[in-house]
């Protein structure tokens, strides 16, 4: 600070109160030693890194769409795959995905929600129940391909289900079960305890309180969790390849014991082909897959918003 402008500078022609008012801002004025620049630079750097996620997403979507868009047509959606790229389509893969997801949902929802209800509402904090909880957390971290190895060993070979939709759906169910349980538990935990108390005070049993009050209140959260897990199952490839679903399938499964293919496997199939036109087919199939996932996620978001206002207190 230079003396003439400092707080103790003499300025006899001004009243002292005004002098003090001038002096104070100077003390609080930002220092010019580069601190501020470093602050701004760091903020900018963090923002740039964080937004790079969006850049990657845009680049990825743009690349895939540019490759796949020209191939997309109604015929592409309704034709079976073919050795000739211009005739090939994804109809069996789409239907296979539908079969797989249908069966997976059928298996996962009752078991997953049931397990969540048990752990949140019925289980006492015993060693066994703590073990179950820990076990679920660990299962959620097991690589998906290990589930494929499990499915191969148990469903395909030991239970002789073969490389069928049923074997695939069972494998997929085990894979997403931990995620469903964790999501459903969170939704159930978010239901205020006063509702349970009110039900008990009327002489309700645990199950009556859960069935009529806790579950309806937790339903939006549970549904969202289930839908997001299903979205994950739609995109999974590795476990299905491991149980041997990667084959040239040109038909649509008619029973749970039929062989099948799904969209991600069809994509893998075409992407790993050495001929260029098939890469474009893969791109088109990816556009369809991402569109399906986007729709599913949008439904989840819609449910979350639609029911948010009903949530208690």
């Amino acid at each position: 600070m230079s003396p003439p402008n400092g707080p103790h500078a003499n300025a006899p022609d001004r009243p002292s109160s005004q002098r003090r008012r001038d002096a104070l801002p100077r003390l609080l004025r930002r220092r010019g030693d580069g601190q501020l620049w470093r602050e701004r630079l760091f903020h900018l750097f963090c923002a740039a890194v964080a937004w790079s996620g969006l850049v990657i997403l845009v680049v990825l979507l743009f690349h895939v769409t540019r490759v796949g868009w020209p191939v997309l047509s109604w015929k592409f959606l309704t034709s079976p795959p073919s050795r000739f790229p211009h005739r090939a389509g994804i109809y069996p893969a789409l239907m296979g995905t539908l079969w797989l997801i249908g069966l997976t949902t059928l298996f996962t929802v009752p078991v997953g929600v049931g397990a969540a209800i048990y752990l949140e509402e019925f289980a006492t904090p015993s060693r066994w129940n703590r073990f179950i909880e820990l076990n679920i957390a660990n299962l959620a971290g097991v690589p998906s391909i290990i589930y494929g190895v499990l499915g191969l060993g148990v469903f395909v070979r030991w239970m002789h289900l073969g490389r069928s939709v049923l074997a695939g759906a069972l494998t997929m169910s085990l894979l997403i079960l931990p995620v469903v349980i964790i999501a459903a538990r969170e939704a159930i935990r978010a239901v205020p305890d006063s509702i349970r108390q009110g039900a008990f005070a009327l002489g309700a049993t645990r199950w009556q309180a859960v069935r009529d009050h806790v579950l309806p209140s937790a339903l939006p959260g549970i549904l969202t969790g289930i839908i997001l897990s299903i979205a994950r199952a739609i995109g999974e490839t590795a476990p299905l390849i491991t149980i041997g679903a990667l084959t040239y399938v040109v038909f649509v499964p008619e029973s749970p014991l039929d062989r099948f293919t799904v969209l991600p496997i069809q994509i893998y199939n075409w992407a790993s082909d050495s001929r260029r036109p098939f890469h474009d087919l893969a791109g088109a199939a990816i556009v369809v897959l991402l569109a399906v996932l986007l729709t599913v996620n949008a439904v989840a978001v819609w449910i979350r918003h639609r029911f948010e206002k009903y949530r208690m207190r």
């Binding site: 509702i195 005070a201 009327l202 309806p216």
Partner: peptide, 24 residues
């Protein structure tokens, strides 16, 4: 029976709030 500190009606209709106790 019991009444709690904070009112805790079930998130249902007025009628069902009372009928539920009878039903169970």
């Amino acid at each position: 029976g019991m009444v709690f500190q904070k009112p805790n009606p079930f998130p249902k209709s007025i009628y069902k709030n009372i009928a539920w106790g009878l039903a169970i």
